[in-house]
Design a protein around this nucleic acid. Structure first.
Length: 823
RNA sequence: GCGAGAGUGGCGGAACUGGCAGACGCGCCAGACUUAGGAUCUGGUGGGCAACCGUGGGGGUUCAAAUCCCCCCUCUCGCACCA
């Protein structure tokens, strides 16, 4: 064994060995307990960044640890390979997206990920841009189409003018595109949707079963799904007699309605204003609001504005005629696009009424203060007693809510309804580098699904990407023109492609049988491996990917392909890697290149540092000196082993006979601590700290040249430490393992068990407090009684000094830990 | 505004059910080996001369509080006119 630790040559040597002997290949084995460890697969942008390093290091420790604990571990890797950057690169550098993507994958796999020493079964690698994969996107799409879960509709959608495509609601953040931050505009288009709302109730309810997920992710999903229980009520438009249906959760305030507000997109507007003197101003207002982009429309600070339509509606409960307004804050997408306005009890309506001098009528009286409409300066939104509400006067509004809805349902003027914030998932993208939607439009037969045997609908390779004009596929005549599968006549293909989030919504199932040719995946294999026991990735997918994947899993279950309700049993959301207080990014110029770190210190150091500097869920502040520290730690272990390696080869490790030895004891305490830290929410930082303590102890306890009789203990420490290090610094551990004559690859070795006898103490140090302050420490044999501890404490000189000879009022003894003498 | 999480040395962070605050690492200081040290090893390192004081601030419960309760402040993230 070399004196110097030289990670470079050592690491590549072990990587070759693992690859040649297929150390990490797995197959289903019913005799073993399985463990599915998965990190979110990357987009092949060309280079990995520190966030990836951290993500995969965390996953790899878990996978390797579970292997050593005897699990049959599935730990796969692949590529989320469709997406816009490939297309942009194509336009900019005149390279085909396919070529660009596959080259990136090769580089990232062979020269970056493999150099990290990750324990993947590379035989299971998948790339979503390959027809073998995306044909199953198309197949699932067709199954969903058959069941009405994929459908086409014309609607207002989010359009990103920079990406030149439509975005799903989940992909719009504060009015901006999630990818490029361009301002998103509303556009009316015909688009494909997945009916995720059909699963809203189950997606919400099952959040309660995801006990292995962080609470904040569940909260975000619950908020996003946004269940709201209320009532739909039909108002009748005066003169025309048309129904204007509104949604409300405050039916207890129905008697306080003094006007109505409808969304500018509401389909009844034309009918309401036609022929009235207000028509002109109303149309002008509607057009002005609709021209605004999403960011402007949804800005909360934005002033509430509206115009009167000239029409009136009749309140079905009290017969009042109230004016109908068009208001800029009413959303067509939510509820019915029309609301009843109760200024006394809703802040938005209150502001609106004040602005336009609309009457305010109090119908809920507060218990604390007497509300007077004229004197109010904000809406009263709390509970109270119903007044001015005809038959409901005098009862509490909480009770009133039920009574009013019962009354409404009995009179058939409305019904209980549940409204969701969640909208159907818009999956059409007007881009090239994605899965073609397998639909054909025939002038005779209409919309015809591509027959299953014709799948995959392959992306044409001879295509010109200009970044201008229509969707690229729409301009590829050879792709568009097709004969109708039903009548054989001339027909046209759908030219939109699928959102790339479709690809990642079921890839975890594909890993179970990645080469399966007859179905998206093999049912047997999936039932063995699924669900994912530990999923690891960034918090940024809290609603996007993680919600879609849950939805797909349920759909796939209902298609009869798989028996499971949820894909990910446990979720770990790792924190960001930051430097100088900001997220690492190229644009901020604070990015640290993983290749540079791995070249200089080796992969094991990079792994140790990123696991040691912070617990996994928290943000990790990058520190160049911290990396040095991680390297120094490995070096220290190396130097120690190198000193003894030759002698240790022929020595058997100490066992129970060494139980009295302090270093032997520390070793077993460390095994215990590291094991517990990994098991307890993957606290790798403290696990590594414990190993560092052991190393410090190793040096301290063998400061003088160790006599031969200590070699068995040294052998035991080194052996255990190497095993403990194996998941964290795998190349290093293999090398040391080999040097001390360990059998086979350490990746296949068993995780050490601690000797419960060895960690027992013969003596305990007990802290002695006087009035809660530490005054002394006494050492007593382990297992002494409380009485003896008390006596020893009272006899202590320091205690006598502080108690001044006075008798104690009370003495508290905490077994084996502490005594508190109260005077 | 609503929801979630977090405030501990110069820094990253420890402290499982209330029981020695600051493990471990970085940085810093001193020493050793050295022509030299940015290498390595050893020791020290919350503040204060001290009694003591110290976990964002203020109250409280307790023999004992970073940990439990109440009030307040700050920061981060998510949602944000959802009727």
């Amino acid at each position: 064994m070399n004196e110097r630790y030289d990670p470079k040559s050592l690491e590549s040597r072990w990587q070759r060995k693992w690859e040649e002997s297929k150390t990490f290949r797995v197959t289903e084995d019913l005799s073993k307990k399985k463990y599915y460890c998965l990190e979110m697969f990357p987009y092949p942008s060309g280079r990995i960044h520190m966030g990836h390093v951290r993500n995969y290091a965390i996953g790899d420790v878990i996978a390797r640890y579970k292997r050593m604990r005897g699990f049959n571990v599935l730990h796969p890797m692949g590529w989320d390979a469709f997406g816009l950057p490939a297309e942009n690169a194509a336009i900019k550098h005149n390279i085909h997206p396919s070529k660009w993507t596959l080259e990136n994958i090769a580089f990232m796999r062979d020269t970056q990920l493999k150099r990290m020493g990750l324990s993947y079964d590379w035989d299971r690698e998948i790339a979503t841009c390959l027809p073998e994969y995306y044909r199953w996107n198309q197949w699932i799409f067709l199954k969903m189409f058959e069941r009405g879960l994929a459908y086409k509709k014309r609607s207002y959608v989010n359009w990103c003018p920079s990406c030149q495509t439509v975005l799903a609601n989940e992909q719009v953040e504060a009015g901006l595109c999630w990818r490029c931050s361009a301002v998103v505009v509303h556009k009316e288009l015909e688009q494909w949707f997945f009916k995720i709302t059909a699963y809203a109730e189950e997606l919400l309810a099952d959040c309660d079963r995801l006990t292995g997920w962080p609470e904040r992710v569940l909260t975000m999903q619950r908020n996003w799904i946004g269940k709201s229980v209320g009532v739909e009520v039909d108002f009748i438009v005066a003169d025309t007699g048309e129904k204007l249906t509104i949604f409300t959760t405050r039916q207890d305030t129905l008697f306080g309605v003094t006007f109505m507000s409808i969304a500018p997109e509401h389909p009844m507007i034309e009918a309401l204003i036609r022929g009235r003197s207000e028509a002109g101003t109303a149309r002008e207002f509607v057009q002005r609001v609709m021209r605004e982009d999403k960011a402007e429309r949804t800005d909360e600070k934005r002033e509430k504005e509206g115009v009167f339509t000239g029409a009136y509606a009749v309140n079905p409960l009290n017969g009042d005629k109230v004016p109908i307004w068009v208001a800029n804050f009413v959303l067509m997408e939510y509820g019915t696009g029309a609301i009843m306005a109760v200024p006394a009890h809703d802040q938005r309506d209150f502001e609106f009424a004040k602005k336009y001098n609309i009457p305010i009528r109090v119908v809920i009286q507060s218990a604390e203060k007497n509300l007077d409409a004229a004197a109010m300066n904000e809406a009263y939104v709390n509970d109270g007693t119903m007044i001015n509400s005809g038959p409901f006067d005098g009862i509490s509004n909480v009770e009133g809510k039920e009574k009013v809805v019962d009354h409404i349902e009995k009179k058939k003027i409305g019904k209980r309804t549940v409204n969701w914030r969640l909208r159907d998932w818009g999956v059409s993208r007007q881009r090239y580098w994605g899965t073609p939607i397998p639909i054909i439009y025939c002038p005779e037969c209409g919309m015809v699904p591509v027959p299953e045997q014709d799948l995959p609908v392959k992306l044409p390779m001879d295509i010109e990407l200009t970044g201008k004009g229509l969707s690229p596929l729409a301009e590829a005549a050879s792709f568009v023109q097709v004969s109708c599968p039903t009548c054989g006549g001339l027909a046209r293909r759908e030219t939109d492609t699928m959102d790339t989030f479709v690809d990642s919504s079921w890839y975890f199932l594909r890993y179970c049988s990645p080469k399966e040719g007859k179905a998206p995946f093999d049912k047997q294999a999936a039932s063995y491996w699924m669900g994912v026991d530990q999923y690891i990735g960034g918090i940024e997918h809290a609603v996007l990917h993680l919600l879609y994947a849950r939805f797909f899993t349920k759909v796939i279950r209902d298609l009869g392909l798989f028996d499971g309700d949820e894909p990910f049993n446990n979720l770990l959301t790792q924190g960001m890697v930051i430097k100088d207080g900001a997220k690492m990014s190229k644009s901020k110029g604070n990015a640290v290149d993983p290749d540079f770190i791995m070249n200089k210190y080796g992969a094991d150091t990079a792994r140790i540092f990123s696991l040691f500097a912070a617990p996994p869920e928290r943000d990790l502040e990058w520190s160049d000196q911290g990396v040095e520290g991680a390297y120094r730690f490995l070096h220290r272990v190396w130097a120690f082993v190198a000193r003894h390696a030759e002698a240790l080869k022929s020595v058997k490790p100490a066992s129970d006979t060494a139980r009295g030895d302090a270093l032997f004891r520390k070793t077993h305490l460390t095994i215990k601590k590291v094991t517990e830290d990994i098991e307890r929410q993957f606290q790798f930082n403290t696990a590594i700290a414990a190993m560092m303590e052991l190393v410090n102890e190793m040096y301290a306890q063998t400061a003088d040249n160790a006599p031969d009789e200590r070699l068995p203990v040294i052998r035991a420490v080194v052996e255990s430490l190497t095993l403990l290090l194996a998941p964290f610094a795998p190349h290093f551990a293999e090398e040391v393992w080999e040097a001390i004559g360990g059998a086979g690859s350490i990746a296949n070795a068993s995780w050490p068990e601690y000797d419960a006898e060895a960690i027992k103490e013969s003596e305990v140090t007990i802290v002695v407090q006087v009035n809660g302050k530490v005054r002394s420490k006494i050492t007593l044999p382990a297992g002494v009684s409380g009485k003896e501890v008390e006596a020893a404490a009272l006899a202590d000189l320091k205690v006598r000094e502080y108690t001044d000879g006075k008798p104690p009022k009370k003495v508290i003894v905490v077994q084996g830990k502490l005594v508190n003498v109260v005077v």
